[in-house]
Design a protein around this nucleic acid. Structure first.
Lengths: 175, 175
DNA sequence: TCTACTGTACCGGCTAGACGGTATACACAA
DNA sequence: TTGTGTATACCGTCTAGCCGGTACAGTAGA
């Protein structure tokens, strides 16, 4: 049933991501995920026969969200650069959460997660380079986005970081 | 014993960091750390009575390495900015490894690790701002460094990223 | 004798996953 | 319309194995 309300399957995936993001991969156990999603462990394993399938399910959903995001970036009112930077810092969106969750998984040496992340980054870079027509600048802006994202995931964000970046990019006639 | 050769204690810390970096926190078990350091589990627990003490030991050493790094940054021949950026990408140094290891720990919700990382970042930022006399620029450069560092830890580094960054910074009359 | 270990044996708790069972819905057939 | 069968979507329990930590007896070198 394509659901009117959030399906159990999606709730399980949401919970898995949430636990990965807020408590780390050690805490994202099957029991914890099931409890968070208000499903029994048996119910969870019905939808995802193993923890690995849970990872696969999460990454599949991430890729779908990623394609939607690239489209939004291309057509953003204030342009791709501003869209990219402002969504690199914490937005609290589902996509954001999925991204951080995938990063956690990637660190546990999961190649599929690393690939998914690399593909997403490649998508963003392509949009940036097309828009700017300048590889060095596109790469630099992407690094700034990575930095904002990194700081965010580490709870390190310095106040006004985005404002400072916009300030500097204006000197380069971007924005 | 301040050691002529690497002490058991240091070897244990090295192994802990290495396992955290190369295999993730789930894999950095006491048994695995002891085996990697060629020490018995009893021997490991002689130096670090608990896993938590191992974390504390690692963070203490990291702070020491961090102070040494800030000094090197301040007095670097090519200037702090170049030093900061070129050491943000992978250098393979002990300090680098310790930094990535601490990041892994921080993600498991360890506040001491987050604080240690935040303090290190603050130290770098102070040097950058003093040198540049421009907060927005200093923050932006720090974000670029974070991005380089993030990409490195994720195995995402795009070829020539540092060159691109230097290119852009030259347009801003930095470097 | 003290320090710095080795090695083994063990325990309690947690973890992934297997498994058997249950409730509901719908389908076809007599 | 009643009975039989099948599929979906779960629940709750159980177990093998791993992990952190304890305990302790022994050893080699300074």
């Amino acid at each position: 049933m394509a659901a009117a309300e959030r399906s159990t399957r999606d709730r399980v995936l949401d919970s898995f991501e949430t636990l990965l993001v807020t408590a780390g991969s050690r805490a994202a156990t099957l029991d914890a995920v099931a409890a968070h999603a208000n499903v029994s462990k048996g119910g969870l394993l019905y939808h995802f026969p193993s923890k690995d399938e849970l990872v696969v399910g999460m990454l599949t959903r991430l890729r779908e969200q990623g394609e939607a995001d690239a489209t939004k970036m291309r057509t953003a009112k204030k342009g791709p650069v501003d869209y990219y930077l402002s969504t690199s810092a914490h937005t609290g969106s589902d996509f954001d959460r999925a991204l951080v969750a995938a990063a956690r998984i990637a660190q546990e040496h999961d190649q599929r997660a690393s690939e998914a992340l690399a593909d997403l980054r490649e998508g963003w870079f392509t949009v940036l380079r097309e828009h700017l027509g300048d590889e060095a600048l596109a790469r630099t802006i992407q690094l700034i986005g990575d930095g904002l994202y990194f700081d965010d995931t580490m709870g390190l964000q310095a106040k006004g970081a985005l404002t400072h970046v916009r300030n500097v990019l204006r000197r380069l006639d971007v924005l």
